[in-house]
């Protein structure tokens, strides 16, 4: 038995906004019978871009119905812009949380909303289906997996399954899921390391690395190095002394300085001679 919150129970017992809208301004449809859940939402949007009504029909479990019901409640009265910013976590939060294995229900809600809003804006709705299908059992694309991993800060393959169902069938795709996950996690942690540093901190950090690991080596040959500027991942340096016109200076920079900085800061650091 799943542990559903009172709010979830309330919404699947007496779902709000069930049904269809005549002449809707937007319709979003996701999921399929084969996968075990499907959701269709209908929106009425006025000329100011405000969602004045929302209705849904769903084929799915208790938490799918609750997620859809919650979604419609959340977006009625909101502008299209505001609705666009709604995340699957917002839906789960509105319900006081969902069991981990049922998070895919909130993702389905978010996707149906996205589909509806892009149909409203006249964008091709097939966009969702494009991209390499990673999980054949549930038809989940690489794009979707990356997006969900990023937005929900997922850390395990099991979580990916909970949020997207990918990997929950034959399990064949788990290797691919792990690869995608590792890439996304790496991106995330790179972002983390650099972002919080202010420019001054960055300069201090790079300077100390240069001083400790680079300068001493160069000085042995009568040369030296000086930090000029830092711009995102580009580090501008000045080479002094006997290094200056040394034909191998470029090589020195690329191979040695860059390697050191990459090791200590991040793989994508680029060293440029100012």
């Amino acid at each position: 038995m799943w542990e559903y919150t009172e709010k979830v129970k309330e919404h699947y017992k007496n779902p709000k906004n069930v049904g269809t809208i005549e002449n809707p301004d937007a319709v979003g449809e996701v999921g399929s019978m084969a996968c075990g859940d499907a959701l269709k939402i209908y929106l009425k949007i006025d000329k100011n871009g405000i969602i004045t009504d929302a209705k849904f029909q769903t084929f799915g479990c208790g938490s799918a119905v609750a997620s859809a019901s919650a979604l419609t409640e959340m977006i009625i009265g909101k502008s299209v812009k505001e609705a666009e910013n709604l995340t699957n976590q917002d839906i789960a939060d509105f319900l006081g949380g969902l069991p981990e294995q049922k998070m895919h229900c909130s993702v389905m809600g978010k996707e149906a909303l996205e589909a509806a809003l892009s149909s409203f804006k006249g964008e091709p709705t097939e966009k969702k289906i494009k991209g390499r299908i990673v999980c054949g059992c549930f038809g989940v694309t690489e794009d979707k997996i990356r997006e969900v991993v990023k937005h929900n800060t997922l850390n395990t393959v099991e979580e990916i399954t909970n949020y997207t169902k990918a990997g929950g069938g034959c399990g064949k795709c788990k290797g691919d899921l792990q690869k995608i996950l590792s890439e996304e996690v790496a991106k995330r942690s790179n972002g983390k390391k650099e972002k919080p540093l202010t420019k001054t901190q960055q300069i201090l950090k790079v300077n100390s690395i240069l001083e400790n690991y680079v300068a001493a080596e160069l000085r042995k040959d009568g040369g030296d190095i000086e930090l000029v500027d830092i711009e995102d991942n580009k580090i501008y340096v000045n080479l002094q002394g006997s290094c200056k016109n040394c034909p191998s200076s470029n090589l020195t920079l690329k191979n040695f300085v860059e390697n050191v900085l990459r090791e200590h800061i991040s793989e994508d650091v680029e060293v440029i001679e100012a």
Partner: peptide, 24 residues
């Protein structure tokens, strides 16, 4: 065209216990 878990949850509220082959 309807889903088993949802049926079970509604039956459970009526005190009726059964089970389902639904994935959910």
């Amino acid at each position: 065209y309807i889903e088993g878990e949802l049926i079970l949850l509604h039956l459970s509220d009526l005190g009726i216990c059964a089970s389902s082959g639904s994935a959910c």
